[in-house]
Design a binder for these strands. Structure first.
Lengths: 281, 281
DNA sequence: TCGTCTCTCGAACGCCGTTCTATCATGGAC
DNA sequence: GTCCATGATAGAACGGCGTTCGAGAGACGA
């Protein structure tokens, strides 16, 4: 009789479910741990939200390359196969994680007089989020943002563009281009990969190591043959002085100013109420 | 050529790599074929250029996911381990492939009166190259372009910017932003991945399937609750009409026009000969 | 002839995403 | 109280990946 019926009520209440390990009364060998199942069993059923939260945590802690289904399952104290019941695939999981992070972004209610400043602030916030989660842009690459949070996000940005007087066509084009422009800037700002292991995420946050890397690049460019690279060698210092914050501000200034000038010269009716939508004045 | 990348430093943390199976002097059993080695031996030594060419061919034919070291070695009639003697790593190989493709791009000699048109043409050419090689932008992501062709490419673009009268700082910033902007646009234009297998690369080239995908997106957006998404539902048709060519032209118009206006309002001396470089008038 | 150097490559290591399948726990139907 | 459908877990395996190791083949100068 393999199990004591008195104390095993939690583990095996049916009593003799007996089978699995063949012989009727041969106890399972000690080296293959069949028991203790009750300890971890019914730990509490992992939920899809818990998986997404753990994935987000793991991504922020160790970066994109550290996220594997096995590793994530370990983090949750379960097996990799269990995750597939909840999220379908790794790509599906990344869909959920992406939409979760997009939900962090706050977009203000449209103010027609300040639409350009509002857009610039949205752009800065988006870049800040991408620096906070260096894996974000890379995850977003092949992904059409159609989660609920992404839709809300798009809705509010488009509302700002329409409130600013941009005609429908230019509003949509401008929105798509704004996102693409921000991503294009941020994607090579977020380095090769991620924090790796020992808080070595120096390429982004630490200004000193960035300074050092810039100096190396400058020295290399300056060392090129002048006859073949007259312009670059003359501009070598400028490569070292490149400040990402300043460059990003320059980019969105160029973009939003240019977009607004295209707006006034657009032939389409500038009245934003042409579509009869209630939320946009 | 003394560039053997194998430095043979300790790569086995467990230490005990030597063991597994083989005995000291047991001859190989006849059923495991040691011979016929002479038949394929000295086929002709594969070169680094041949590897790069084969990788480029494989990428263009079947896309980024199809490129693995094993697959590429098969393509060359050799073993995967052989490639590592020539290219060091897959990443090193991608460096070479990337620089090879960058070398395709032709940048005109600077014409001070036409610098904006010249830059726009460079941008269009770069986008065309990224559509011709849909894997290009994805390969370029974590990669600092420092190969010989990339340096020549940068030199010529910077020469155009300087010839246009942009001060040194703005020329470098504008160059970096131009590349980032083009990449940001092209990266989500080149789809999820690649041609996969049966000439199914419909997402980019075939206008009909793109039309159909746009119609699906429009219908989905139009089906959203109007109360929650007043702006998006009103603009649903615009999402279907989005023409990438037109959108790209709009983007570089906005960018180059904005850059040129920043140039004239810049405090730095606009004389392009201030650095004493011979190649730029 | 010998030794050294360049180059090839089968085998293995440790990872990956994913699937199969056996199993357990639970709760409603009878 | 018993039975069964269902939700959920997870070990084992499959095929593939990048990379390394070590044995060896050929070329070539001494």
């Amino acid at each position: 009789m393999p199990n004591n019926p008195a104390d095993s009520s939690a583990a095996d209440p049916s009593g003799l479910s007996g089978l699995s390990d063949r012989g009727p009364d041969i106890p399972p060998p000690p080296w293959q741990r069949a028991p203790d199942r009750s300890a971890r069993r019914r730990r509490e059923p992992i939920s899809r939200d818990a998986i997404v939260a753990a994935a987000l945590d793991l991504l922020d802690r160790e970066g994109l390359t550290a996220l594997s289904m096995r590793r994530l399952a370990d983090e949750l104290g379960t097996g990799a196969a269990s995750l597939y019941w909840h999220v379908g695939s790794k790509d599906g999981l990344l869909d959920l994680v992406f939409d979760e992070v997009i939900g962090e972004g706050k977009v203000p209610d449209p103010d027609p007089d300040r639409w350009q400043d509002q857009l610039k602030q949205v752009a800065r916030d988006q870049r800040a989020a991408s620096l906070r989660h260096p894996w974000l842009v890379r995850v977003s690459i092949g992904r059409i943002p159609m989660g609920p949070n992404a839709l809300r996000y798009s809705e509010r940005i488009l509302a700002i563009l329409r409130a600013g007087g941009l005609p429908p066509h230019l509003a949509v084009q401008g929105y798509l281009l704004l996102i693409a422009t921000i991503n294009g800037f941020t994607i090579d700002e977020t380095g090769v990969d991620d924090s790796a292991d020992p808080a070595a995420n120096t390429s982004l946050t630490d200004p000193e190591s960035r300074q050092r890397a810039a100096a190396v690049a400058r020295d290399y460019i300056a060392s090129l043959p002048v006859a073949q690279f007259p312009t670059m060698t003359a501009l070598a210092d400028e490569f070292a002085l490149a400040d990402p914050d300043e460059r990003f501000d320059l980019l969105i200034d160029i973009f939003i100013d240019g977009l607004s000038r295209h707006a006034v010269s657009s032939p389409a009716g500038p009245s934003p109420t042409s579509a009869g939508q209630p939320g946009v004045p």
